[in-house]
Design a protein around this nucleic acid. Structure first.
Lengths: 145, 145
DNA sequence: TTATATAGAACAAATTCAGTCCTATTGCTG
DNA sequence: CAGCAATAGGACTGAATTTGTTCTATATAA
């Protein structure tokens, strides 16, 4: 159904929530607080935060008063970054993600190249939106046609 | 993973194959031939053809020498049409498809409106490609940046 | 009347996903 | 230094979705 996983959906919400707190880059938020703010169960939040950390979007700090913080500015994190980490490579069809030669129909497939074009547009749409734009309530995104 | 179902993927291939035959609108192709041309198992092709027929994209003809034909010109059938019929409403997140008020976070959700914008772009990309453009090997789609 | 082809529903198997839990590790703090 | 707080990473289970098949009924051409 061309739907992304709930994990990725949650991930975007969590990242947006962190960014919206407008904390300095080095200020950390722990999983428990995020769970409450985003209304997502704590174990799930933890799982997502760990993945985002491994993916390089967050930095973590262990121990008491530990937590997570954005690894870079909200304006330099895109929706595509988040989804790719949590869901793997984004692609509408297998053949847009699989390595060249993986599909035996490749040479004669009537839809291969059109799919690549559509896929590129989808990627652009996801890459074109940063966390910063997402939380900036004064942005003009919604007014665009 | 933001991937559409195989059924929808097959559906697009099948429709493109039918359109590529460049047969007149009333000429029918049966499921068996399509199965061979598209390299998809016959039962699966049958299932997809039935669904596309119910969805109004194909017309069927029973009995010996029966089969299926496009219900309208290839230039008037979009990729979005095909996917919607086989996979249901297209939407990256549940909240872009669910009726208003279905999500309790709706009022305060930090990502709701950005998602709607991204979703609109994805829909546009899918709606912007017709079956005719897809099979027209001389089209300029691939050359676009 | 018979063979061919689709209609539609029901079904079984397989894959994927969501969510939880457990143990290890790190680092603050008294 | 001892104990607590917090993340790291993996394993595991249950559920939901998806895939692909099969079976019976119906229509139609020869």
């Amino acid at each position: 159904m061309i739907r992304m996983s709930k994990l990725a959906d949650y991930g975007v919400v969590i990242m947006a929530t962190m960014a919206r707190e407008r904390q300095p880059l080095d200020a950390t938020v722990n999983a428990r607080d995020l769970s409450e703010k985003a209304h997502i169960p704590l174990p799930t939040v933890g799982k997502i935060l760990k993945a985002l950390c491994r993916g390089g979007l967050l930095v973590s700090h262990r121990g008491p008063r530990g937590g997570y913080a954005l690894a870079r500015l909200a304006s330099e994190i895109t929706v595509l970054d988040i989804i790719s980490i949590l869901d793997g490579p984004v692609g509408l069809t297998d053949c847009t993600v699989a390595p060249l030669g993986a599909c035996e129909m490749e040479a004669t497939c009537p839809v291969r190249s059109p799919w690549h074009m559509i896929n590129r547009r989808v990627l652009d749409a996801l890459r074109g939106l940063t966390l910063h734009e997402m939380i900036d309530s004064t942005n003009i995104l919604d007014k665009r046609p």
